[in-house]
């Protein structure tokens, strides 16, 4: 069998066309990620899944797997870089976990625990990002946005609605709603949309839910996110065919 590469000394098989991330997750090897989603085309923007391939840094979610690759993932050097990326995300927005309904279900938070981020380290930005509570069923809290574009992709590709977009450049880049008023209520966005389900953090929240799941029973309470690797496995091309 030639379609095999190596992650941290462990052999990982792959099918041609799979990315390093897809092959690793399928083999049960967790690679931290935020903008990757098993149902969407890789995006490569959050850089949390950075690995070293034959000594060169690369985003594992966009890099096609190739036989014989030597991939470093859980090394002190890379873990340190991922931790720093998380810290930069944490200070750039307003991530006040105690008041967030997504707490315990949030991938950013779970990765903070996984990578043992004990402090945001950098100086806080404390940006002013008003919430949009205009929609009947959904609250938008932009304070927590990490610009992964999953809602944008879901709304455009699955819902065919194009409700979200990014605006601005560099540090002023931010999530906007495609309506003349800028308000979610003035779009055809609905709670059942795919875009309402994919936010890895607490930006897009269904209303009238609150803290429904008690502490201890939330998604990442019992086991760390790395133990949830099954949930991130892509649908294999062969199985995709079977389903159709």
């Amino acid at each position: 069998m030639s379609d095999v590469f190596n992650i941290d000394g462990r052999e990982v098989p792959f099918t041609p066309g799979q990315t390093v991330m897809q092959a690793a997750l399928t083999a049960g090897v967790f690679i931290p990620h935020l903008c990757y989603h098993p149902e969407f085309k890789p995006h490569g923007s959050c850089k949390l899944c950075t690995v070293k391939v034959n000594g060169q840094p690369a985003s594992s979610c966009t890099l096609p797997a190739a036989a014989g690759m030597e991939v470093e993932s859980n090394t002190p050097e890379i873990l340190d870089k991922r931790k720093m990326l998380l810290q930069m995300l944490l200070v750039e927005g307003n991530h006040f976990c105690p008041s967030c309904e997504k707490s315990g279900h949030c991938k950013l938070q779970a990765l903070g625990y996984e990578l043992e981020v004990m402090t945001p380290h950098f100086n806080q930005f404390y940006p002013n990002r008003p919430v949009d509570a205009s929609h009947h069923d959904v609250l938008l809290d932009f304070n927590r946005c990490i610009l992964c574009e999953l809602c944008i992709r879901a709304s455009a590709e699955v819902d065919k609605k194009n409700v979200f977009a990014l605006s601005g450049r560099g540090i002023t880049k931010h999530l906007i709603v495609n309506a003349e008023s800028g308000r979610l209520a003035d779009t055809d966005f609905a709670l059942a949309d795919k875009a309402a389900q994919v936010c890895p953090v607490g930006v897009i929240l269904p209303k009238r839910v609150g803290f429904a799941v008690p502490i201890g029973q939330r998604r990442f309470d019992a086991a760390p996110i790395s133990a949830h690797v099954d949930e991130f496995v892509p649908v294999a091309p062969a199985r995709q065919g079977e389903r159709q």
Partner: peptide, 17 residues
Amino acid sequence: AIGACAANGGLPAQRNH
């Protein structure tokens, strides 16, 4: 530093904007 407030400002910092 113990707790959220010492680490990132926490609840009192919600006035910062």
